[in-house]
Amino acid sequence: MTAVIEVTGLSKTFGSIRAVDDVSFTVEENKIYGLLGRNGAGKTTLMQLLTGQDFAMKGDIRVFGESPVENAHVLQRISFIKESQRYPDDFRVKHVFKSAPWFFANWDAEFAERLIGDFRLPLNQRIKKLSRGQLSSIGVIVGLASRAPLTFFDEPYLGLDAVARQTFYDRLLEDYAQNPRTVILSTHLIDEVANLLEHVLVIDQGRIIIDQDAESLRGTATAVVGVATAVDAFVGTREVIHRDRVGGLASVTIAGLDATERAAASAAGLELTPVSLQQLIIRRTNTSEREFEQSA
């Protein structure tokens, strides 16, 4: 596997806040990564460092084997779609798509046109007059049609409705299958994208707390539900990821169980329920579900 990004001991602080705190990881070529975490966890800072838009205080970043900072050779192979992209004041939608090919060597105008139709973007509209969702769809289209070898989507869909988001996921998968490339998708909507991801990076308080294959991550947790005393007896000394209690009932999230352990649990009258990727991350980052949704 070829590494597209190699990060070692990377740190970035803003005053007393450690936005990125001694982070090391690699990103392999032609996979779809999920960069997940709460607001303020350090996702955007990390992506800004990786794309040379901010300076690291410590550590080393290699993108395509080189430092990305002021390195045209690296940056021309990157497409970074931000949550709130700014455009020149007098720009109309069509101007964005006219200028995009100047920056992206692999720009596919035909694909862009198809996407403009999919998202029903009015080409002659002034950017200033667009709705939040329409603005987001410009970013999504640029990100997809640029076909950059390394594409970042940072919360690309503020204001996009469920139908438009599904269109984005479908087009991303289709085009990725035809034109494999490395995609890093940063999002709060974990359940929506869980099946698209091949690898998951979870950042919390500036640190990478999960760096794992998405498929293997799915099996790493189970919730054991039942009468509290029986649950506690079964859980014993196992590591507890999360614990909920309502009256005499308990729901405890623990590491994944093998077939024998599952049989033992059901023999003890306990119910085992799967833990979704989103729930797992919420539990690992010690956030309540409500808090997490509110931060979205």
Binding site: L173, E174, Y176, Q178, N195, A214
Partner: peptide
Amino acid sequence: STNEFAAFYRINPATALK
């Protein structure tokens, strides 16, 4: 093809291939 399976089930092509 795996890509067709991936698009149909809305999953990562690597998962479909597996």
